[in-house]
Amino acid sequence: MRIVAEDLTYIYNPASPFAVKALNGVSLTVEEGEFFGIIGHTGSGKSTFVQHLNGLIRLPSSLKKRKRPRGWKNIPPAVLKVGDFDLADPKTDFRALRKSVGMVFQYPEYQLFAETVKEDVAFGLKNFTEKGKAKPTDEEIAAAVKDALHVVGLDEGIAEQSPFDLSGGQRRRVAIAGVIVTRPEVLVLDEPAAGLDPLGKREIMELLHRIHGDWCKTVVIVSHDMDEIAENCTRVAVFSEGRVVRCAPPAELFKDAASLLALGLDIPLTAKLTLALEKRGISIDCDYTMKDFVRRVLARKGGGQ
């Protein structure tokens, strides 16, 4: 499913002294099949934007008149489409949308509630049963849970355990399994690796690559970790003060490191090394993944011989 946003604006607490313009005319397209990255400082609007994607935050035009918050009148009409879902239209089936767009929040392990891992993972599966259709049988549920646990790299043996007996990293994976179990076409993750140790981070990124493609066609991640972004993403949008200020593949984005640094954002280690080498008169033209950087450096050395 293709995601198209045009001129998206959002204000928290409109018409009050606490009003905050979180989004200020965001236009962005994410193609089907991308592993899309969103970066920017805390408060730049990233999280607000992604919460629009499955209708947790609704466009004012999609709400009934009397439910529209005060102070919205001056906001221009926006476009937001996810596949065939028109999120500006009040007639849209938002439940169906949520089934197609999975959302993993920050620290998702804190949303676990059920007595067993199996029950927790199956929660979404039971909720999203379409009206009029037969509820999934116990066997179907067990099979779906098993598959979901497998893809996040957990042993099915833990299905009967309490999620609260697991380690932090395992719990996070259970939580991710609980979102992808319904096989959403788009998976959105808000800082999926936050708070984990380096090894845990790597494992999460590996599992996202396993999910990307067969399980979920499109993956969108919000991240602060530029190395993570450089290694994994097809394209990156840079949010700043509620706007998208850049949108490009990492290879292009990090070439212009100065503009990112000017925004107070970090750059990946490979970009830092490239800059340092440039100062020494050596230009390395890489796509900023570690593998490519190493390959090009070695080629430079070999090429000189």
Binding site: L269, R280, V294, K301, G303, G304
Partner: peptide
């Protein structure tokens, strides 16, 4: 990875130092 590829860079955590070593190898190599 660079060492595995045949460069003799030392383990360091300083970007500038690593850049120095890489630069030296490349310049010497050519």
């Amino acid at each position: 990875s660079l060492r595995e590829g045949g460069m003799s860079v030392k383990d360091t955590l300083d970007i500038e130092k690593l850049a120095d070593e890489i630069a030296e190898e490349i310049v010497c190599g050519s």
